[in-house]
C-alpha cells in the first residue's frame, strides 16, 4: 500500500473569479496510477479545481490563483512551460469535442502539433492510440472519414485517443459521460478501468454510482472546499463527515 507515488499535490490552493472565492485552500495528494474521483454538487468548484491542474483556467480572464500545484515535485505555475505541462497532463471534456476533421487527423493532431511529421510514425501512433481507447476495431476502415459522423460515445473515445496520442502521464476528465447514453457510459467506464494501469486519472463526475464503480480515491467538494478525501470504498460505505453522508445519500441541503 505504501509504495504508491504522489503524482500531483496542491498546497493551500485558492482560486478567485473576480470576487468569487471558487476554490478554497485545497491540500490534496493525488496518487499515481490511481483513479481519483471528484464529486460534489454543481458549482462546488470541482471542475474549476480540475482545470487548475493543467492551467486551463489561464484562458479565463479575472482568474486569480494563490497557493501551489505540484506535478512531480515541480510547481505547475512556475516551473513548467505550459505546452510541456499540457502535453503531460491531458484533458477530456464534458461534451465530446472532436475537431471537424477526419478521425485520423483528430488523433494525429497532437503529435503533429508537437512536431512529428513522418507518416509511418503518425500511422503507428494513431493505431496504438485508437487501440488503447478501444475504438480501433470500430473505425479502422474509415479513418479518413469525418469524426463528426461518429456516435457520441465513439466521439468521446476518440477524444480520449486524441489525448493518449500525445502520451500524457495524467488524464483529467471533466464529467466525460454526462452527455452520453448509459451503454456508451459503461464503455467509457471500462476504458477508464483499463487506462488506470498506465495513467493517473482524475475524473469529475455527478454520477455517484460512477465514482463508486471506477475510482480508487474520492474527494467530496462543497462550496469550494474538500470536505472529505479518502478511499472510495470508505467514502461510499462509511463517510466520516455528515455533509458527505447527506450528499451521497441524496439528502443534501
Amino acid at each position: 500500500m505504501n509504495n504508491t507515488q504522489i503524482k500531483i499535490s496542491t498546497k493551500n490552493l485558492n482560486l478567485y473569479y473576480g470576487d468569487n472565492h471558487a476554490v478554497k485552500n485545497i491540500n490534496i495528494r493525488i496518487e499515481e496510477k490511481k483513479v481519483t474521483a471528484l464529486i460534489g454538487p454543481s458549482g462546488c468548484g470541482k471542475s474549476t479545481f480540475l482545470k487548475t491542474l493543467n492551467r486551463m483556467n489561464d484562458l479565463i480572464p479575472y482568474v486569480r490563483i494563490t497557493g501551489d500545484v505540484y506535478f512531480e515535485d515541480l510547481d505547475v505555475y512556475k516551473d513548467y512551460d505550459i505546452v510541456e505541462l499540457r502535453k503531460r497532463i491531458g484533458m477530456v471534456f464534458q461534451k465530446p469535442n472532436p475537431f471537424p476533421m477526419s478521425i485520423y487527423d483528430n488523433v494525429a493532431y497532437g503529435p503533429r502539433t508537437h512536431g512529428i511529421k513522418a507518416k509511418e510514425i503518425l500511422d503507428e501512433i494513431v493505431k496504438s492510440s485508437l487501440e488503447k481507447a478501444a475504438l480501433w476495431e470500430e473505425v479502422k476502415d474509415r479513418l479518413k472519414q469525418n469524426a463528426l459522423g461518429l456516435s457520441g460515445g465513439q466521439q468521446q473515445r476518440l477524444c480520449i485517443a486524441r489525448v493518449l496520442a500525445v502520451e500524457p502521464e495524467v488524464i483529467l476528465m471533466d464529467e466525460p459521460t454526462s452527455a452520453l447514453d448509459p451503454l456508451a457510459t459503461l464503455k467509457i467506464e471500462d476504458l477508464v478501468h483499463e487506462l488506470r494501469n498506465n495513467y493517473t486519472i482524475i475524473i469529475v463526475t455527478h454520477n455517484m454510482q460512477q465514482a463508486a464503480r471506477i475510482s480508487d480515491q474520492t474527494a467530496f467538494f462543497l462550496h469550494g472546499e474538500v470536505v472529505e478525501y479518502g478511499p472510495t470504498k470508505k467514502i461510499f460505505r462509511v463517510p466520516e463527515d455528515k455533509r458527505t453522508e447527506d450528499y451521497i445519500t441524496g439528502r443534501f441541503g
Binding site: 455517484m208 454510482q209 463508486a212 467514502i235 461510499f236 460505505r237 462509511v238 463517510p239 458527505t244 453522508e245 451521497i248 445519500t249
Partner: peptide, 9 residues
Amino acid sequence: QQPLAKDLR
C-alpha cells in the same frame, strides 16, 4: 434507489 453510505448499511 441505489443506496449508498448509511442507507446502504
